[in-house]
Amino acid sequence: MNYLFLDIITTAAILFIISSGLLIIFGVMKVINFAHGVFLTIGGYSSLVVTRFDWDPWFSMPLAFVVGCLLGAFIERAILRFLYHRPLDAILATWGLGIVLGQLIIIAFGREVQFADRPVSGAVELLGAFYSQYRLLLIIFAVLVAAAMWLLLKGTRIGLQTRAVIMNEPLARGLGINSSRVRLITFSFGAGLACLAGAFITPLSSVDPNMGLPWLVSAFMLVLVSGNSFLALAIACLVLGGAQVLASTYINPIIGGLTIAVLAALLLRLRPKGFAYD
């Protein structure tokens, strides 16, 4: 029972970390970033690079974030800014980009499954159960990500400008806010966050060129049911992630793997706002 509880909480934490980069991009740009899966993968390979160079495993996280930001900034300027009026084409272009980046990774690192060093390993006793220390750490990471987002959006001027662009872009521009700059920063930050998320989840499994793909659809669905709200995203991660854990435990893992996608699609059909309130 305690295992189950911890599984639900840590799964929700992982999902939250994975989806937050996508959410911020979707919120500001109304664009679903299909390259999100590859960004996660790049985060994983950042960890691998750190392992190869024998650096401290913790260093993989800032490295992944910086790599993601730079890559995101480049993609936004080179491709996405032409596609804001064509959101469906933006899906396709980011997907094509994902294919290209995925192949580049294969050329650079090979197809095989590889392992990166973990910053923390072993289990601790919690609530009478032995539980993976790193999974517990992910809860803290999720809280840190959420807190950072909250501080950035509510506490800084660029955060306020970002919220203004989300709510009403023409009005924001009329007030002198450079929405093109806001988009650049947002996409770059969202990509950084996605790569960081890749580095976060790498210690849970292994590194391979397709490691991001299974997360992609779950992340989309969670973002779609959350509207623009990080709070709604947190709730969605808890509820749908919880359902996934329960289905995997009591039915079978394959059904579990489908839970988020199917439940979210049905939820949106019945309640288009999903978990978003207001």
Binding site: I32, V217, F220, M221, L224, I254, L258, A261, V262
Partner: peptide, 26 residues
Amino acid sequence: WQGATSLYVAVVTLVLPIVVVQLIYS
């Protein structure tokens, strides 16, 4: 349904192949 965005439609059609493949695996 009325009011479904084209984005939502695209994502629903994305879920179907994933469900079908998972059923094949299982």
